[in-house]
Amino acid sequence: MFTVTPEAQKEVSVFFEGKEVQPIRIFIHGGGCGGPMVAMALDEEKDNDVRFDIGGIPYVVEKDLFEAGKPFEVAFNGMGFAVNSSLQLEAGGGGCSGCSSSGSCGC
């Protein structure tokens, strides 16, 4: 299952106003001090992707990642997007201790 909340869909639609619509890739970002996370970015569709067209916007996820992490949900919380999934990602290095941020993870 792959869903996009109404708030997220509205924000994505606003982003593409007056622009050519491009696929949005859902992927694992290596992360920084907080470890790996599920992220999204504009990209091209590839042969090994699963594609979801929601509100005229194509979202793509590599097939193996989709199977490992479903369900996926793209949400918008007023400050930014969040991609939620069932993946259990390990923080590599104990949170923010290695990024020189005093007390917060603002890397």
Score class of each variant (00 low, 15 high):
Gly31Thr: 01
Pro58Gln: 09
Lys70Tyr: 03
Gly78Lys: 07
Ser85Val: 08
Ile28Asn: 00
Gly55His: 04
Gly92Asn: 15
Val60Arg: 01
Lys46Arg: 15
Glu44Leu: 08
Pro36Val: 03
Ala82Cys: 12
Glu90Met: 13
Gly56Val: 08
Ala82Met: 11
Tyr59Thr: 08
Ile54Leu: 14
Gly56His: 05
Phe72Leu: 06
Arg51Asn: 10
Val38Phe: 00
Gly93Ile: 07
Ala68Leu: 13
Arg51Gln: 13
Phe72Asn: 01
Lys70Glu: 07
Asp53Leu: 15
Gln88Tyr: 11
Gly78Asn: 03
Val74Met: 00
Asp53Cys: 08
Gly78Ser: 02
Arg51Glu: 11
Val38Gln: 03
Ala75Pro: 04
Gly95Val: 10
Gly80Cys: 06
Val50Glu: 07
Leu42Ala: 09
Ile28Gln: 06
Gly95Leu: 05
Gly92Ala: 14
Met79Ser: 05
Gly78Phe: 03
Gly32Asp: 07
Gly80Phe: 02
Asn48Trp: 09
Val83Ala: 05
Pro58Val: 11
Phe81Arg: 06
Gly93Asp: 06
Gly95Tyr: 12
Ser85His: 09
Asp64Tyr: 11
Ala39Asn: 12
Gly32Tyr: 09
Leu87Glu: 04
Leu89Glu: 07
Lys63Pro: 08
Gly94Leu: 09
Ala75Asn: 01
Gly55Leu: 11
Ala82Thr: 15
Asp43Gly: 09
Lys46Gly: 14
Gly92Glu: 10
Gly35His: 07
Lys63Gln: 13
Leu87Met: 08
Ala82Trp: 06
Val38Pro: 00
Val61Leu: 10
Cys33Trp: 03
Asp47Gly: 12
Ile54Ala: 02
Gly34Val: 08
Asn77Glu: 00
Gly69Lys: 05
Met40Asn: 03
Gly32Arg: 00
Cys33Tyr: 03
Ala68Pro: 06
Asp47Leu: 11
Lys63Ile: 10
Asp47Ile: 10
Val38Trp: 01
Ala39Asp: 02
Val61Trp: 05
His29Glu: 12
Gly34Cys: 08
Ala41Gly: 14
Gly69Arg: 00
Arg51Asp: 02
Phe81His: 00
Phe66Leu: 12
Pro36Ala: 15
Tyr59Cys: 09
Phe72Gln: 04
Val83Trp: 00
Asp64Cys: 05
Gly35Asp: 06
Arg51Phe: 09
Lys63Tyr: 10
